[in-house]
Structures are given as structure tokens and as C-alpha cells.
Design a protein around this nucleic acid. Structure first.
Lengths: 215, 215
DNA sequence: CAAGAATAGAGAAAAGTTTCACATTTACCG
DNA sequence: CGGTAAATGTGAAACTTTTCTCTATTCTTG
């Protein structure tokens, strides 16, 4: 199976579905219809069914979807049933927040390393803030540490001007996934999974909508 | 003008363009071609031209786009040439990061209020962290404060279980824009600009790509 | 046990988005 | 001053994604 024709939008919605299914499960619900799931997630019911149809048949006609079952299936599809090792590169404001606030991450994501060009300068500040000692490594060690600690995904939280440099180093390592928090488009060779997550882009989007679409 | 048929993807790309144009401007560049801008932003050249064509003609055939001019035009389109007032609702881990790390925000976004159901409990913690006193208000005051301080956009950073409650209060206020950091879909009446920004959704996306698409 | 209501699955249609291809414009060079 | 190269703007084509609609299945109720 390769699922290469599945839209990325579908993948994003699957995350939303699974999150809502967990809420329903906690409430003790057992079955959910595509219509109800769709409404809770703000999409069309046919969309929910199409999204799931890419991966198999998980429902029962006339009945709906068994919540636990569907949830497990989606988690398997997304790869949420295994642990992913993360590294944070760039321990400035943003990076140290991520390090500090581990509960940003769901339990299947684990931070296994932190890198900064100024480890000495950063260690004290961060350790104090977190209240326990933290190991900050120099990016030179990236390749070695990536292999040893089996880092799957690098989170780039450096200044924008450093992002491409970091990306080049990641390209030389065993890491294949990147979540880029900087407002730059990094250039990578084929074979890497890269997603950008820049916050003010979305804020700009809200501002635009306010400016032109609302009222 | 209403620009109601402009794809949201276009808006997101405009943010990327403007950011790259600023980099070019700093470097002292004067003119840029759609091909070059496209490459830097990881899109197709025709896409750049189409995106801009929704709003007018900003280029010169045979030449390209004057960087300063294009940048100004896009900023006007996006509404980045005015100041937007933000409020952060929910001053837990995430909320206090946003408050603390103001430089997450570009200069045209200004945090003008912070709310939490436990102002007293939060004030000390946050003030200490920020190193200066911070005013945390109770959400009951939202309507009044929203009007007085002309809050444009509310950033919801509460626990997911509280998000809808907060959304309902926003619906009653003068605020019309929401950036939702919680992993829930909030239900709003028509006439609100709402965008979700949930971090592990994107992380899930990277994990999925690693699982099925890479290598 | 039969009829009716509820609901998934799937093909087709519709809508939306991206890319192509080319006519047109501009600058530059010999 | 004319020819060539570079680059935009744009209509059409290609592609992708969403929505509709209908059929088949299951459960429930009388």
C-alpha cells in the first residue's frame, strides 16, 4: 500500500476525526454516524465517508462507525500507534517553549534531543526555566546524535536566516521529517517530509478575512 | 471590492511572498521575476502570477515586479498596513508563551489583553516569568474590554474542553476574528473569521508522510 | 416477520485549483 | 533602429477535491 493519491487535506481531517473520536469515547459513546462526526468537525458527511474510503471500509451501513474501532484504524493509518522521536533545533524563545511545554505534544511524540549553536549560553537559561538540567547539543553533533537516538522528525525553531543551513545539515543526517517553524521555505532534496507551520501566516489569513469577508 | 472568490491558499501564499520580498528588499534587490519568487516560495511561476492577478496588475512585462511596490501592494491586500489588536484567552502553558514571546508576532499585531478564569493564580506566575507585572482579566470582562480596547482577534489558548464556552462569549462580543489553538472545531454563527492552528495536526501530517510517502 | 428509518459506500457531477501555452510587452544589444 | 531575450497576463486545459445522489445494508418497531 502506498496511499500516494490521498489528499493531504484528508490526512489533516483524519487527525481531527481521531481527536473527536477520543472525546466521544471518553463520554462512553459507542457508535457515531458520518453525519454527526462531520458536523462536529465542521465538514460535509460525504467528505468523512470519502476520506475513510481511501483506506478501507470501516463502517456498517444503516448503523454508523464503531468509535473505538474507527479510532484505532485511523491511528494506524496515521502512524500514531508508534512513538516518534523529535529533535528541536534552535533553543531561542520558541524552541525553549516547545521544550518547556512538553504537553504541547501528544504522548506518541517524544523529544529526544535539543540543539543550539550556543549550547553553553542556552543551557543555564533553559535549565532554570524548566527547573531541571537540560542537555543542549551543538548542531555539529546532529548526524551522530540523529543516528544514536533515532530521531525521526526535526523541528526547526531557529531564526529564519539559519533555517536553510539547518536544513542542509538535516539533509546529511538520517532524519527524514521536518516541521519548519520559521517563515522561510527551505529547499530539500527529494525524499523528505517537510511541513511548514508558521503562525503569523495564519494570523495574516484571519486578518485578511476580517478585512474583506466579514460583514 | 470583495475578493470573495479568492482561494484561501492564495492568501496563504501571499503571506509567503511578502515575507520573501522583505528579505530581497533587505538585500537591496529591486526587481524580481515570478519565476524567481516562485522558486523561493516553493510554488509554480504561473501560480504566483495567478495569485496576484486576483487583485490587479502589479508587474511589467518583460521586466518583472518592482519589489518595494509589490510588497506594499500585497501588504495592503492582506491588511498588514494597519495594526490589529489581539487578545489571548487562556493563560496556561501555551497562552503565557504567546504573551511572553511577543516577538512571535510581527509588529502590526499587538496584544492588548489577556484573559484567564483564574486571574489571581496566573498573574504571579506569569509576571515572574516575564519579569514585569501583567494584567490578567477574567473572561467575564471580555465584552466590555473587547469594546474598550478594540480587540480584533481573539486567540483561544484554553484547554480544549473550554474552547466552545470561550467561543460563545466571543460571539457575544465585538470581536470578529478567532485564531483557535485548541484541537477542537468551534461552532460559530455566520460572520466570523475563524482559523484553527493546531500544532500536532501538522506533526501528525509529517508522521503520516514519513510512514507512507518517504522512501 | 415485514415495513420503515437510518446510514455507509460509490459513481457521477460539480466546483475549485493549478498548470500550460501563448500573445504581448519591455529592455537590451549590436 | 530592428532583432532577440525575458517576462507578464490570461484563457484554456488538466487536474484535484468536494458534494450530490442513489443503491445496498442494517436495525428497530409493531
Amino acid at each position: 500500500m502506498k496511499f500516494s493519491k490521498v489528499p493531504e487535506a484528508t490526512i489533516r481531517r483524519l487527525s481531527a476525526y481521531v481527536r473527536h473520536l477520543e472525546v466521544l469515547e471518553e463520554k462512553g459513546e459507542v457508535v457515531v454516524s458520518s453525519a454527526s462526526l462531520a458536523e462536529s468537525c465542521g465538514v460535509n458527511a460525504a467528505q468523512v465517508r470519502k476520506d475513510l474510503a481511501y483506506f478501507g471500509e470501516f463502517g456498517i451501513r444503516g448503523v454508523g462507525y464503531y468509535i473505538k474501532d474507527l479510532s484505532d484504524n485511523i491511528k494506524t493509518i496515521l502512524g500514531l500507534n508508534r512513538e516518534w522521536h523529535l529533535a528541536i533545533i534552535g533553543i531561542g524563545n520558541l524552541g525553549s517553549s516547545l521544550l518547556f511545554y512538553k504537553d504541547f505534544f501528544k504522548k506518541n511524540y517524544k523529544i529526544v534531543a535539543a540543539f543550539d549553536v550556543d549550547p553553553a549560553g542556552v543551557v543555564g537559561r533553559v535549565s532554570e526555566k524548566i527547573g531541571k538540567p537540560v542537555e543542549i547539543l551543538h548542531p555539529e553533533q546532529l548526524q551522530e546524535v540523529a543516528r544514536d537516538r533515532r530521531i525521526d522528525i526535526a523541528i526547526i525553531a531557529t531564526p529564519a536566516s539559519e533555517a536553510q543551513k539547518v536544513a542542509d545539515q538535516i539533509a546529511q543526517s538520517s532524519i527524514r521529517g521536518i516541521l519548519n517553524f520559521t517563515p522561510t521555505q527551505i529547499q530539500m532534496p527529494k525524499g523528505f517530509a517537510v511541513k511548514n507551520y508558521f503562525f503569523t501566516t495564519i494570523l495574516d489569513n484571519v486578518a485578511y478575512l476580517l478585512r474583506w469577508r466579514v460583514k
